[in-house]
Design a protein around this nucleic acid. Structure first.
Lengths: 132, 132
DNA sequence: CTAGACCTTCCAGTGCACGGGAAGGTCAAG
DNA sequence: CTTGACCTTCCCGTGCACTGGAAGGTCTAG
């Protein structure tokens, strides 16, 4: 299968597939006599894995670390579990941050709606922000 | 006040202050005869405003748009309100996304904890991901 | 007089995950 | 034989918000 086919079937652009090869996420495939990349069907699964892992918030670097373990002959399960737990913790923190930010924003908007622009202090950029 | 003082007092590095000047977030200050930047105390407030606006999730570009209105002699309140509402909407979407991702992760971790690595399909990178 | 703390400009790199486009080779259809 | 779709490598650009470092000027204390 040539790179264009793989791209169409996987939904990943040819450009991106070459990039993944560069950074070691997909194996360099065989080449046709004329130098075209010639992929096995397994490449499709590899790309699906990458997309799946991306979808749950893993970076390409983390995904590479999983694949590297696998290529080492190890079962990456423990490592994957670590990554997933770590990611879940990060997400918890991030969500909490965003929610508090959201609360702050709502407060600001509420306050702003009750104000008259004429009350602006001409010496400041905007009294809505910065004195929270 | 020289840039080092301003940096210490504001908690923004000198490098960053110069960068803000480059992109139009802070006014180019007066210079001493030897060419050193010489800031008025108001610069401290400006930096505090920028940090405050950043803290509620506005980008430097958005902050610049507020400051530009102000420098135009306008009251940026309406514009700020738009930005805040827009940001709040974005936050709502982002939080919902992250929460759903968080749920997915929790599901994966739960499932993974009940599995034996020996059940790994040797032909796949990791059965934990990609067939969700 | 010199050390060192500060300042200046300018250029370049960081991290992430690609995308754009040039210059050229290959292959099948008409 | 040519057109057009495809492929190759290569290098540069994107967005965001900085950060690092080189090469040089300035100021103050000892």
């Amino acid at each position: 299968m040539r790179i264009g086919d793989l791209a169409r079937r996987s939904g990943v652009t040819a450009k991106t597939i070459r990039y993944y090869e560069d950074i070691g996420l997909v194996e360099p495939p065989a080449r046709t006599p004329s130098g075209y990349r010639d992929y096995e069907p397994a490449a499709l699964e590899r790309l699906a894995f990458i997309r799946g892992a991306q979808a749950i918030g893993l970076s390409l670097g983390e995904i590479r670390s999983i694949i590297a373990l696998r290529d080492d002959g190890q079962t990456p399960c423990g490592h994957v579990l670590d990554l997933l737990r770590h990611r879940a913790d990060e997400l918890d923190r991030r969500i909490a941050e965003l929610q508090s930010l959201r609360g702050e924003l709502r407060r600001l908007v509420d306050r702003a709606e009750g104000l008259d622009p004429a009350d602006c202090d001409p010496g400041r950029v905007c009294h809505l922000i910065g004195q929270a």
